Amino acid sequence: MEWTSALPFDARPLVEPVDRNVVRAYVQRLRAGGRAPKAAPAAVVVAVVVGVVFLVMFANIAVGILGSFWELARDGGGGSPAGILFAVFPIFFLVVIVGLVVVVAVKLFRGASGERWYRLDRFAQANGMTWHAESPAPPLPGMIFGLGHGRRATDILRGSEPRFVEFANYRYTTGSGKNQTTHQWGYVAVKLSTPLPHIVLDALGNNALFGSNLPASFDREQRLSLEGDFDRYFALYCPRGYESDALYLFTPDIMARFIDNAAALDVEIVDDWLFLYAKRDFSTLDPATWAWLFAAVAALLDKFAQWERWRDARLADIAVPTAHPAVAAGPAPALPFAAPTAALRPPPGVAPQGRRLTRRVPWGTIALFGGFVLFWLVLQSGFFGGILSALFSR
């Protein structure tokens, strides 16, 4: 997207009326062109759930009807065809009703999904972007992208000017069986022009009761306190030894931009990417959400030029010039000017010690879980029961 006044923010495609026939034809073109899933497994799940709910709600009524018709068939109809018909008809009736519920649920789900795709696609085009239905296991280096299984980004909007930006919803699952948990995230990915040290800004305003809502915890010795009110909004983590680099990157004006526009978002800088995270969908049909996200990205983009001038001094030894092969064997030519004696600027990149933060081992959580397991084992052993029996038997 052109993050300038040349292409104003246009949210009309998200809310204006649409023709269902146009949407239906659009979805058919998407599927035929391979831009959308051929099937919608979630629709089947929704339909099954609706059918089960229907059966549960009307179970008593269904049992009463079946009982009445069965008695009628047994006593009045005997073994005649009419009696058998009276016994079979209620079952057939229930099967038809459940089938209709499933079909309607599938159609409603697909219709809603198709309209959503249509609106987001038109919204992306109106704002100089492209829309993509989904991307399984997106190959991004952020902390949320390598966890669990069933990783999938959906409703992806991408812009390429003045730099690559991607907005999407993201899901992954941890655990298995009855202990499965699906994790929901929204993210914005911004491509930077140079790799930077691994820095995390944990937004304090969206933390859970027991601390950070991020899926990773970091060594507390890596936390850096910044001036002003920044620490009231973010906990900043940077690799040890990179404190001065973080201070160079997060100047007062950049800190103000983050506080004013991204205080509700967790931020991660890793390799040559900047990520904004939240545990909610970003790619929605809500114009207010898009206005907020576009404003946040636009506020940060014009400050990235300073970041692109950063170089890791630890790579200075790499920037040693070598003579061209054609003149390497000859004497050094005399120069009519004095060559600078200062060291050359290091190349873009980050030394190995700055590429990833050190993760913290959650000893408190491990100890708490171990205590619960130990307590459960003691209960199962009957140890407390034996003590209580001994006490009351006296």
Rank of each mutant, 00 (worst) to 15 (best):
A11E: 05
L14R: 07
V15R: 01
D19Q: 05
N21G: 13
V22M: 13
G34N: 00
A43L: 02
V46R: 12
A47L: 01
V50M: 13
G51K: 10
V52A: 09
V53Q: 09
L55C: 13
V56R: 14
V56I: 14
N60L: 15
N60P: 15
I61D: 14
G64F: 11
W70D: 06
A73E: 06
G76I: 13
G78F: 04
P81E: 00
P81W: 10
A82P: 05
G83C: 09
L85C: 06
V88R: 03
L94D: 02
L94P: 01
V103D: 01
A105D: 01
F109P: 03
R110M: 11
G111L: 08
G111M: 04
G114Q: 01
G114L: 01
E115R: 11
R116Q: 09
R119S: 00
A124L: 04
Q125P: 07
T130H: 01
P136H: 03
P139A: 08
P141Y: 05
I144G: 01
F145Q: 09
G150H: 12
G150K: 03
R152E: 09
T154Q: 07
T154M: 09
D155K: 04
L157E: 03
R163G: 01
F164C: 09
F164G: 11
V165R: 01
Y172T: 07
G175V: 10
N179C: 12
Q180F: 04
G186W: 04
V190A: 00
V190Q: 02
V190N: 03
T194E: 06
P197E: 04
L204R: 10
N207G: 14
R220L: 12
L226Y: 04
D229I: 03
F230I: 10
D231H: 11
C238R: 03
G241L: 08
S244C: 05
D245R: 02
L249E: 01
T251V: 12
P252H: 07
A256D: 09
I259D: 00
N261M: 02
N261Y: 03
A262I: 12
V267C: 03
V267D: 07
F275A: 05
F282P: 09
T289Q: 14
T289K: 15
W290T: 07
A291D: 15
A296Y: 05
V297E: 04
A298D: 10
W307I: 09
E308C: 15
W310P: 05
A313E: 15
D317I: 04
V320M: 09
T322H: 14
A323L: 12
H324L: 11
H324R: 11
H324E: 14
V327T: 10
P331C: 01
P333H: 06
P333M: 00
A334S: 15
A334V: 13
A339R: 15
A339N: 13
P347K: 06
P348A: 11
P348F: 12
P352Q: 11
Q353W: 14
G354N: 09
R356C: 08
L357M: 04
R360D: 14
R360M: 13
P362Q: 13
G364Q: 15
F375S: 06
V378I: 07
L379P: 02
S381A: 12
L388P: 14
L388T: 15
R394Y: 07
